[in-house]
């Protein structure tokens, strides 16, 4: 019974596609695969740990200061992640710059804590957090895959489109590395996702 908690958010209940949460900080880091991966892992870690901690504390938190407690726990986790990145993944932390800080205001984290963790036991909350974090990471990687492949002809920085193709006149699509491409790609991904999950269609 716990499997749906983990796997549901990966496709059908995807936080970005179905619940339209957490887009803010997501798209600016998707021009290349590598920062997108680091961002996805960081958000998964914060969502999982925040859900776990706040679910364990749920009976002790006074209702009046609930939101502030959530913000403090989430910001503390994000600061720790930021410090770890600066110490052990210096290049990635340089690429992400301010967007690490913006994990705090990522709606997925507060959204899952409010909607799930505060009403459930720690273990299911952890699974829910990991699932939603991964669902977010998948979309990030999907967008980054197309942007890096079409925009730079590379994946994870390694060139994959053969030189011969460039000699025959193939050119990288410059639009893909610019911000608007991310928005249009997400629009198209939502389109495909909803065509397959008809109950999500808005009237």
């Amino acid at each position: 019974m716990k499997i749906p908690l983990l796997l549901g958010p990966l496709s059908k209940n995807n936080p970005i596609l179905a619940q339209i949460l957490g887009i803010c900080s997501a798209l600016a880091v998707t021009a290349k695969m590598e920062p997108a991966l680091v961002m996805g892992v960081s958000v998964t870690a914060v969502t999982a740990l925040a859900s776990l901690i706040l679910s364990a504390l749920r009976d002790a938190i006074p209702n009046r200061v609930r939101i502030i407690v959530q913000l403090v726990v989430v910001s503390a986790l994000v600061i720790i992640i930021d410090q770890l990145l600066k110490a052990f993944a210096y290049d990635a932390s340089k690429q992400l710059s301010v967007f690490v800080g913006l994990i705090i205001t990522n709606c997925i984290i507060m959204g899952r804590v409010e909607a799930f963790a505060l009403a459930n036991k720690p273990w299911p909350s952890l699974l829910d957090g990991v699932g939603n974090g991964l669902g977010y990471a998948i979309i990030l990687l999907l967008v980054a895959f197309f942007r890096e492949l079409l925009g730079s002809g590379a994946l994870f920085g390694a060139r994959v489109i053969p030189e011969a193709l460039y000699e025959r006149g193939y050119a990288n699509n410059g639009l893909m590395i610019l911000p608007p491409a991310a928005l249009i790609l997400v629009g198209v991904i939502i389109w495909i996702h909803r065509a397959r999950n008809k109950e999500l269609i808005e009237s």
């Binding site: 610019l178 608007p180 491409a181 629009g187 198209v188 939502i190 389109w191 269609i201």
Partner: peptide, 19 residues
């Protein structure tokens, strides 16, 4: 198209406005 209604088309419109 039905699956694009609402959020989907808003993303694409935003992308075009960004351009």
């Amino acid at each position: 198209p039905a699956p694009l209604r609402g959020v989907g088309i808003t993303f694409i419109v935003t992308g075009l406005m960004a351009i």
